[in-house]
Design a protein around this nucleic acid. Sequence first.
RNA 1: GGCGCUAUCGUCUAGGGGACUAGGACGGGGCCCUCUCAAGGCCCAAACACGGGUUCGAAUCCCGUUAGCGCUACCA
Length: 486
Amino acid sequence: MPDTLASSAKTRLRFAPSPTGYLHVGGARTALFNWLYARKFGGEFLLRIEDTDKARSTEESTRAIFEGLQWLGLNWDDGVVYQGANLARHQADARKLLEIGAAYRCFCTAAELEERRREAEARKEAFKYDRRCDRLPSEEIERRVAAGMPYVIRFRVPDGTTEWVDMVHERIAFPNKDIDDFVILRSDATPIYNLAVVSDDIAMGINIVMRGDDHISNTPKQILLYRALGAPLPTFAHLPMIHGLDGKKLSKRHGATAVGDYQHYGLLPGAMLNFLALLGWSPGGDREIMTVPEMIELFSVDGLQKKAAIFDPKKLEWMNGQHLSMVPLEELEPRVTPAIVTARLATEEALVERRDWYLRLLDLLRVRSRTIDDIVRQAGPYFLEDIDYDPAAVAKNWKDPAEAALLLRATREALATVRDWTTEDLEAALRSLAESRGVTAGNVFQPLRVALTGLTVSPGIFEMLIQMGRELSVKRIDKALAVLAA
RNA sequence: GGCGCUAUCGUCUAGGGGACUAGGACGGGGCCCUCUCAAGGCCCAAACACGGGUUCGAAUCCCGUUAGCGCUACCA
């Protein structure tokens, strides 16, 4: 039973970006679904760099793709395949197609073709190659080849209909009459995309081709190539595109589209993956927030969407906030520390030295952050010797300097009586202070908040006093008193 | 132009013939909690593109229209 043999073969998928730019969020999502499929069903996820376009491919882009995938944690199996290294096989496959009569030499020049294309357009007709070179007598072909006349190799599209059952779209069919006799090998003997892809996918044993639906119209051509080459067909799965807020294909105009942009913006890879997964896939029901293992567990082809999705940065930010609050502190710490160090708030050694204190701080700040940068922005007052006073905070909460100073002095005294620097004792001291002075607790807390942080917003006042410690807290109050007196 | 794909709130989506006064989430508005800001809780506004069928019954199936997107290279 050949079916048994086929189904016992390991599932192999691949992500095949061309290194002509940074890893795009659309590409990252394609990679994610391939990866999820492989991880969920015990298949292999391969990476192939399609660098056959030497003019546009760069090593820098290749590196960016690696870095992007690594940051996201989309690890690939086996070594990276570079398409450019397979030139000989591509040529051999083209030759083979020529020899078995599935393809033919075409001597029409690019300029001639362009001319005919223009004419057809002028007549408002669809241009289609007229196969004139396929009708050349064999002696003529031999004569031209012998004369060293340049030619391309074209695939002879047979009559009929080419169809397949797509994993996401079900049946898709193309009448072959609408498919041009496409070029598979250029006159300089380099392969055209469709040939290179099919040749490589066959060689790599890829049996599920999952890619963007902008490749749907390439698929019938590729199927024809598989058949002519005598190779078994893979299963195709065409994923919908990602669009910008204006409904157009995502591009630079839409702002950040590179995965690296989000990394530097302070996102968690888990959040990015979660967001990307929901763009074009749904686990069903109301499930939204998922860890990577949960996504693998929940992943299924049924949930794949047919419709293009719009990339909404607002929801991404919200989702990152959710992940920020959800991940274990030990996992969050290494993501935040480099940013803290870069912001020159502390050295890595200093953070290691008071790790428990540092983790507590992260826990305090993350709940009101949507990005890692938000955490860093709030962290200043806990590390810096001197703080800046936000003019708005001063205007609002130190409205009357004399009054504020009076209150702060009283607060300082009240804090001095606190024996245990705990939430309970601090709260008791400050609330009774407010009561004895006949003001609300907020009237006491807000000026103190400005003294401690220079800001109107911060974590709860007691948590903050504890986090800063008695010494620093008192020092900040003294400093505020000095500023108010000036 | 030709060919193809798609079509549920502004956005991501649930839904796969009756459970739909169409559910959830983001964003927006309001309220609660509260020492500020978040977080959290509660509530509100907001959608089945249109037209024909099929069926006792359609968001769900079929056809058409419209719209959006993609492809239409000796690019990938």
